[in-house]
Simulated scan of single mutants.
Amino acid sequence: MTKTEPAPAALTAAGVSLSFRPRGGVLCELIVQDEGASISPLHRAPWAEAEVPADAPPHQRWLQGDFLAAPMGPGPDGLHGPAANGDWALLPSGPGTLRAVLDQPVLGASVVKELSVEDGHPFVYQRHLFIGGVGALPLANHAMIALPGGAKLSFSRKRWFETLPEALEPDPARGRSALAYPRRSEDPTEFPGADGGTVNLLRYPWGSRHEDFVTAVEDPASRLGWTAVVRPDQRDLILSLKNPAALPMTMLWHSNGGRDYAPWNGRHLGCLGVEEGAALPVLGLSAKETPDPLSAAGQPPLVTLDPLGTTEIRHILGAISWPSGQAVAGVMLEGDRLTVTGDWGAERQLPIRGGWLGLASSTAASAPRAAPSGWDI
């Protein structure tokens, strides 16, 4: 018998609101009111739950918004693990905060999700607590950005960009992947394509009808990790912020009509996953090296649990009006103020919880330098 799905919960502050879906632990329907604009950045799949085949990963039935993938990728508990496919029970919470606990353990750890918003801040502050547990796991937030009219991407400084061990869709009878696998490149504007040419990963879309996954690895010198997605047609900008010392990888899922089988049926268009995490197995070349290049640089390749304590992962997701359409050239955090600068001089100063990511009080980041089988998302 199918369990009754718990009712969604709402979280609201002045200028920002969201819904939380307990099944799958999904942050959805994020809306930011900024400079007279109402910004809805998150993607939602175009199918009804009844259209999803019975053998598909459960989270595909409600695919939308942002959820936690833990463990990330294929595994014995299904693609993206219990965190993405299980139920989360709401806990007592204070004003501006929503808390929930996962109904099953992850590597023996109890998992608590906390979402919080603040009046006048165009962000949702997100953290996950792993209480106890034994071992290390690949993990990522799984935000999906809606890009019906394309986007310009910018990042904090990255060491390189790298694809999975093999293409997401290697069978032309089922779909198409347009990047080369496995490959890596220091230049995101000239990443190897499957056809022998190159593509510019700082633009979306860069091809038609394709399904691809590529990961950017943070420079160890970065103190603030950031991803900026400018939607010129929407006149806005989506920001993803993290502590790169905890989450050194930014995984980009390009889902743009590249799957022809149910429930995708060639209609899942304009979706960009911006997945901040630590998940060495998605690196098709680096995961095979000993030592792997993340560990060699002192960066965590996985999230290691503490059997006698709590492991905490934090992330900030937000959106602002950005009518210039300029690509982002820099993001700087000074105290409780975040400054975003465009490549032609546009600038916004935003209120933020400056210490929330666990960074130093003054953090600057400049513009970037000029999977195992079974993955189904």
Rank of each mutant, 00 (worst) to 15 (best):
N265K: 13
Q64F: 00
S255W: 09
F161C: 04
F67T: 03
A370K: 09
G133N: 07
D34L: 08
A70F: 08
A56H: 09
G81K: 06
R353C: 12
D343K: 11
D66M: 04
M332R: 15
V124Y: 02
D236A: 09
G318M: 09
I316Y: 01
M72W: 04
E275G: 12
W375E: 12
F130H: 06
I316H: 04
D376Y: 09
L317V: 01
E51H: 11
L338D: 06
W88L: 03
Q349P: 00
A56D: 12
W264G: 07
S93V: 02
K152Q: 14
H121E: 15
M72Y: 06
L11S: 10
D292Y: 03
P220C: 12
A9F: 06
G149R: 10
G325F: 06
I145Y: 05
S240A: 11
L338S: 08
L305G: 09
G108P: 11
A45G: 08
G309V: 05
L68A: 05
H43K: 03
L79W: 01
A100P: 02
E275V: 01
F191G: 12
P22M: 08
D292I: 05
G135R: 02
P22W: 08
Q33H: 15
D292M: 01
H210T: 13
G108W: 04
A364Q: 15
G345V: 05
R99I: 03
G374A: 12
A100K: 08
G25P: 04
L98P: 00
V52K: 08
G325N: 05
Y181G: 06
K3G: 15
R203W: 04
A89N: 08
S208F: 13
P76K: 03
F123I: 13
F161E: 01
L79F: 14
E218A: 15
A365F: 01
A180W: 03
P46C: 07
L139K: 11
A262G: 13
A327D: 00
G25C: 08
P205C: 06
L164N: 14
D55P: 00
E276N: 03
M332L: 12
L168T: 05
L11D: 11
L18P: 02
G193K: 14
I352S: 07
S116K: 02
Q64T: 10
G73Q: 10
A287M: 14
G342E: 02
P293E: 07
E289I: 08
A216D: 04
